[in-house]
Nucleic acid binder design. Structure first.
Lengths: 337, 337
DNA sequence: TTGTAGGCGTTATCAT
DNA sequence: ATGATAACGCCTACAA
């Protein structure tokens, strides 16, 4: 005489119902804490649930509700510190709200690939998507897709009318450029990020604004690819025409590579050239010389993204976050103390 | 006269069946390419699928098959370069095989938390789990769980009888320690990773083995926490008792912090002290001096993990991978050229 | 407050 | 080779 639940199958809502001597519907009500249910009955049901170690089948629930309690993360950034920290925070915040997270890494940012990635996430019935794909093209594709799935983007220009969420990149870039100016540097170069990257544009804009405001000459920015290797290369090249006294690199990795290149060429940092970066990655404080940079709170960004997305999903009013204030981390790479 | 599929609902297998003038069962057969089906019929079905832009409902499929085509990634490492690269590779490999990936970050490694994380993944019906939780305790908990879900661990000692998959940490540690010895260093310290971390133990073991084999004195290892900040602190402390001529740090971050600490104390690297690390993170080549370290192929590790896990899930014979050979990256932090 | 009936979209089983 | 029918485990709607 074996009950179904003893035959290796996972206990279902009906097994619980039988044990608690109620209908399976009552069990369902307990599960979704429906208001009208007698405490006594509820207790019996909860008891049965505990006894059987019953867990609702998420697939069944997803099928009938067409909601999966799952958030998708669409990322087009490979293993960098910033996005990675944000993703970890997203995941934690989502779990805290009862959502699980599935990630999808974009290897290309062609409209087709983005489209198919979003569709794939749709197939998986994610309830919403967080996009960490800082290229403007991705942004455009997304807008045009009229996707049925709510989404939030993590990076964007700091323009007020954007959907996106981000630290105020432009303000940060301005801040650090002004710092260089305050130090008495007047020929300030910019080692920018790749074209098409929203953050690269914002940081460049902040840089240009600061220079213009100070009536300082601007130079055509060098286009980098975010990597330390490129920074290294650029440093060696730049050292041949030392018509500058400071460089603002669009991220820390390039700044560190840049310093390496300068070192190779016999240029001293900060004596001959000031170098500053952006992001404040964990090694920034420990390279030689310690890197002056702009600190970003990637984790907070991730948490906000989830809050915003969930509000959108639930149809609540979106919490309005002020822009995340970037903070200057002054160390020795801009000037010796 | 509106067909169901025109009323905003997603087209289902029955809509396809109606359009192709077959039973929904036949459509299902086409979907799962069942052998016995007339090519002509199949073509008609595929046509209808294309016309309706039909996509199978994954939740429904998961419900009936109790397989989700989803892999879980259980990670207990916060945003470090190595694990992150592996996770990206895992995700890519999994998608290539038609699996999606859901990640779960462990904030604590208490048995209860691990248990509930695994159960959570179980609730989500993952078909298998990749564990990147390099603490031995996690490993033990997992073994004891007799979980019904197949899993693979990414880190482990290099002992042959382990389930885990990893680069040969011990060999790498040995290799780099021998390199220090070959350079003529005889008083070699080890800045280790935290107790309880499998990799920390392996690297320490490799270090000890190399020293013993060379009849060199060993010192009690300093226990670090993997961070550059700790390395920095340790460097300042160690500089007060300079009874050593080389330090092998268990990872690059600590090595970089260490060099910073030495610099603060006026100790020159590599002239006074050689410093080497482990991992070959992207900045390793660009710090001053460039860091001699052991390169690990994190991506390959991730791919192998997926291959192994899928074989286990499908009941195929597991591909037997040889240990991933670690490779020495000789730069200037151990000795000046 | 509780129960009954029906359906979500798919695959499995047994017919034909 | 194809079709009818019955699950899978849950929720929503309505009835009692």
């Amino acid at each position: 005489m074996t009950s179904p639940s003893e035959r290796g199958r996972m206990p279902s809502i009906r097994d619980v119902a039988r044990l608690a001597e109620v209908s399976h519907q009552t069990v369902s009500r307990v599960l979704n804490d429906h208001p009208s249910i007698r405490p006594e009955t509820k207790a019996r049901v909860l008891d049965a649930i505990a006894v059987l170690d019953y867990r609702p089948n998420l697939a069944a629930r997803a099928l009938v509700t067409s909601k999966s309690q799952t958030l998708g993360v669409l990322s087009a950034t490979i293993g960098e510190f910033g996005p990675t920290s944000s993703i970890a925070a997203i995941e934690e915040a989502a779990r805290a709200e009862g959502y699980s997270v599935t990630t999808l890494n974009l290897t290309s940012t062609s409209p087709e690939d983005i489209g198919s990635a979003v569709r794939q996430l749709g197939r998986e019935h994610v309830d919403g998507i967080v996009v960490l794909a800082p290229q403007v093209r991705v942004f455009h594709v997304l807008r045009g897709m009229a996707s049925t799935v709510p989404f939030v983007t993590l990076q964007s220009a700091s323009g007020a009318d954007e959907i996106g969420l981000s630290a105020d990149q432009m303000a940060g870039a301005r801040l650090i450029t002004e710092h260089l100016i305050a130090l008495g540097r007047t020929e300030i170069l910019h080692l920018a990020g790749p074209q098409d990257w929203i953050e690269a544009e914002s940081r460049m804009r902040g840089y240009l604004d600061a220079l213009r405001e100070a009536d300082l000459p601007t130079f055509p920015p060098i286009r980098g690819d975010w990597t330390a290797d490129f920074g290294h290369f650029a440093g060696q090249e730049l050292a041949r025409r030392p018509d500058f006294t400071a460089v603002f690199a669009a991220n820390d990795l390039m700044a560190i590579g840049l310093m390496h290149g300068f070192r190779d060429a016999g240029l001293r940092v900060p004596e001959d050239v000031s170098v500053v970066g952006f992001d404040d990655i964990p090694v920034a404080a420990h390279v030689a010389p310690p890197l002056t940079t702009v600190h970003q709170d990637f984790s907070e960004l991730g948490r906000r993204a989830v809050a915003l997305l969930l509000a959108q999903i639930r149809g609540e009013v979106a919490p309005s976050f002020g822009a995340l204030a970037p903070v200057l981390r002054i160390r020795e790479s801009a000037v010796s103390r």
